[in-house]
Computed example of a mutant assay.
Amino acid sequence: MVNSRMDRRCFLAALGALSLLPQYVRAEEYIDIDWSDLLPEGDTVLPPALQALGAHDQSALPSQQRASSGVRTDWNGQIIRLPGFIVPLEYSGSGVTTFILVPFVGACVHVPPPPANQLVLVTTQTPYEAQGLFEPVNVIGMFGTSATVTQLAEIGYALSADRIEPFPLQSWAR
């Protein structure tokens, strides 16, 4: 009887201690999502090649942005991992602290922006040393819906990045 009570106390103490650990120290607990997961049921992603058929100049205007068909709230408050490309908005030193994560190269700069439900505003406390415009990355962090307007586009989602990792282009099989 004493051993079972002691085992239960140890177990409860361990659970309590685990809750004090920061989220990023815990095991790799995140949900892998893809850009199509951000669309409402029945909606489809327009391939980048077709999106690029719009006005193709150096100054794509937010007014040319296709209307969004809505956002999904399935992953609000969840830790997710989403691959994409960086369009920098704010820097700290030589590192990016705020950027738009986009599903394909050229989005928001060379072609009209994708709909708001295909753009994610990423913020990070630790500046990310981007290798250049449109670097492919995996972003892991707390995800949610958030209507944001920038000089480039309207954005439907936000992600507070715990971790940003380079994503090898040869792995980009989407």
Rank of each mutant, 00 (worst) to 15 (best):
A67D: 13
P62F: 07
G42K: 05
F167D: 06
P115N: 03
I33S: 05
P115V: 03
P83R: 12
R9H: 12
S92G: 11
V2P: 00
P127F: 09
S36T: 10
S4V: 13
N117V: 05
D7Q: 13
A130E: 11
G84R: 08
D43V: 08
Q23K: 07
A147H: 00
P168Y: 07
Q131Y: 08
E154G: 12
P113G: 06
F99Y: 13
E135Q: 15
T148M: 01
T150E: 00
A107T: 03
L12Q: 10
R163M: 12
S146M: 10
L39A: 02
Q170Y: 15
Q64G: 10
V2H: 00
E29C: 09
R9A: 13
P115S: 14
Y30S: 09
G141T: 04
R26F: 04
A60P: 13
I86A: 13
R26S: 10
I80E: 07
S68F: 06
H56I: 06
L89V: 07
E28S: 13
V139N: 07
I31T: 15
G77Y: 05
S59Y: 05
L20G: 11
Q65A: 04
L152K: 15
A147Q: 02
V109W: 04
T126Q: 15
D32N: 04
S171A: 14
C108G: 06
D162N: 06
V71N: 10
G93M: 10
T148G: 00
D7A: 14
F104G: 00
V87G: 04
L18S: 01
P115R: 08
L82I: 10
L119P: 08
I155M: 10
S68W: 10
Q64L: 13
A161D: 08
H110D: 10
D37L: 08
T124H: 02
R174F: 11
V120M: 05
